[in-house]
Nucleic acid binder design. Structure first.
Lengths: 352, 352
DNA sequence: CTGAAAGCGCTTACAG
DNA sequence: CTGAAAGCGCTTACAG
């Protein structure tokens, strides 16, 4: 293996100088720098990142930690589970952003709980943590909040001494969705909503209410249907809804997510109801699938790139500010959402 | 941070003894071992894996390297690209198996090519590499074959001094698929096949031919249609096929993969042809989606768990045999495939 | 069975 | 601008 020792010898300098040159220190003469560069190239030298991590007490690695409800599940294990579809979509950007920042992505194998969980991450000298906590009650999440390691959460509104979060403007998104329907003449608007005990679901529910109130429409709590985040449950809930209600008793549905909307569409279709002729449907997220539903789904776009860019940027600034004893910026980032109009929404059917 | 020094002091032994106890050396007295255990627990000690990696010159990390055609693409970037669907499905098992073996999974950010690519992996002291090379011509793949790092490829028939591979019995699978159709009375069987210049595609094509020959049926090369691995291309190719051929000129289609079969089904459906009434269709892979196609797809199952288990097992035995100067087992693993009969195949329509 | 010492490959005050 | 030295936290011959 080629070490800095060999580079130093070839360039006729000490290892200290090689190290300085490598790390862009200004305290290296132009000639020395040049000779070192040449030696590095001719020897094909690459610094040993493990040794660097040891002495710096930090590696160029960011751990990706997902906490589903289930303790045992892993990052990839939720492939195909519709309730997590959006986050998996997000990982694409995560990987790219982290690579662009020249960090590695680590998926830690962690059979640990709470206290030891953090310690095991510390012992890997991860520089930072990107966490997606579907289940904020997980004790590992709480441990993370008290840890020294810079952490950015996505969608869990969790802040700590060394952690912050990024999320979409869920409230405003849901408000836009509902407002869009109101502008199309809808008045009796059902919402199929999930996780109202969590930050995402409750914000979306509030947005729905707000839009109605702003339009001076009554908020009928009977029109709020609780469901799970996945397609199947949304499908079942819609079936129930269709049994309970007369056709013209409502003319539109705001779904809690796109994958839920897909279940809604299926149930409506099965009951012979036409979208948007009989019922308009709006989703949330704007996952790729929206384009291919029948009909293509009007939805609220969450700006995944902006979310991930924001998260990684914050994370890296937290990591690097530690070095310089700056106060790191810990304010959360809220990313704007945007209505994407496709074919699943239309004018309210006129009352007969 | 708690170090082995502190554990040693508390237990009244030297760091060397702590290290031995930790690594299960037999050369530690029962009493010492006990005191060390207690100290570890009471201090909440966790060894520094970075320091361990440095001195052992190896970390407990396995790198996951995917090589798509495109140099720039990353692991997650192929989400939603139908031609890679099977491999993404595979990653679920990869993550679990690696975690079960108590290794971490690293997704290296590698803007390097060839020579430096290997070196950067070496400098991370990865223990082994799991590689999926859709594009075996990638120069990084060649470099990997000559590297010191133990490597297991999935589906690229690449062996080197420190590498081997695992793959399904693609030939036999395709043979089974075709045989199944023959037993149902089909004689004019089209195959829609991809990548016949690669190991997977060519094995599947050979299996198709073999089944026909074994049944004493003629092999009509006109019935072999080349396509891409993705749904869209398979769809287009089937459209072409349907323009070229009379309805009864063929009664069954063997698709190169499930995702291709989905394109085939769509094209047949669009032409008003009934499956399996008019045409029987067989896929390959048995991805989760097969259950939800209309009709549910008869296919050849690749045993993903067995593939991944085999791969990880081989990899770990390669990693660990190095230590003991055993000759590592480098023979490839071929996993049997199995016909799964669902509803897309049926008796051949009788000639009128 | 145990400990003192050397060493893994790097970085970073410190002194010049 | 540069080098000698100490040190990051561990493991492993070596000697006893």
């Amino acid at each position: 293996m080629v070490t800095s020792e060999q580079v130093a010898r070839m360039a006729g300098v000490s290892r200290a100088t090689v190290s300085r040159a490598l790390n862009g220190s200004p305290r290296v003469s132009a000639e020395a720098r040049k000779r070192i560069q040449e030696a590095i190239i001719s020897l094909g030298y690459e610094p040993d990142v493990v040794a660097q991590s040891l002495v710096r007490q930090r590696s160029r690695t960011i751990a990706l930690c997902l906490f589903y409800g289930d303790q045992k599940s892993t990052v990839f294990s939720s492939f195909g589970e519709t309730q997590h579809y959006f986050y998996l979509d997000l990982l694409r950007d995560v990987e790219q952003e982290i690579a662009a920042a020249r960090y590695d992505l680590l998926l830690p194998s962690s059979p640990y709980a709470a206290k030891n969980y953090i310690r095991s991450l510390q012992m890997r000298h991860v520089a930072g943590i990107l966490a997606i906590a579907m289940n904020p009650a997980d004790e590992r999440v709480k441990a993370l909040l008290e840890a020294e390691i810079p952490t950015v959460f996505i969608d869990s509104l969790s802040q700590g001494r060394n952690s912050t979060y990024v999320t979409s403007d869920n409230l405003d998104g849901s408000r836009q969705a509902t407002e869009h329907l109101i502008q199309l003449g809808h008045q009796r608007i059902v919402t199929l909503i999930s996780g109202t005990d969590g930050p995402i679901g409750s914000a979306r529910l509030t947005g729905y209410r707000q839009a109605l109130q702003q339009a001076g429409l009554p908020v009928d709590e009977q029109l709020v249907y609780a469901s799970g985040w996945n397609t199947e449950e949304a499908y079942q809930t819609t079936l129930t809804l269709l049994q309970e209600r007369q056709p013209r008793d409502f003319t539109a549905i705001v779904a809690g997510s796109d994958l839920m909307a897909i279940g809604v569409l299926r149930a409506l279709h099965q009951h012979g109801l036409h979208v948007p002729g009989d019922v308009s449907v709006v989703g949330f997220d704007d996952v790729d699938l929206c384009r291919y539903t029948e009909p293509p789904l009007t939805t609220i776009r969450q700006d995944r790139s902006a979310m991930v860019q924001g998260a990684i940027q914050r994370l890296i600034s937290m990591i690097e500010s530690e070095d310089e004893h700056d106060a790191p910026v810990l304010s959360p980032i809220i990313i704007p959402t945007q209505l994407i109009t496709r074919a699943s929404t239309g004018s309210a059917a006129l009352p007969e």
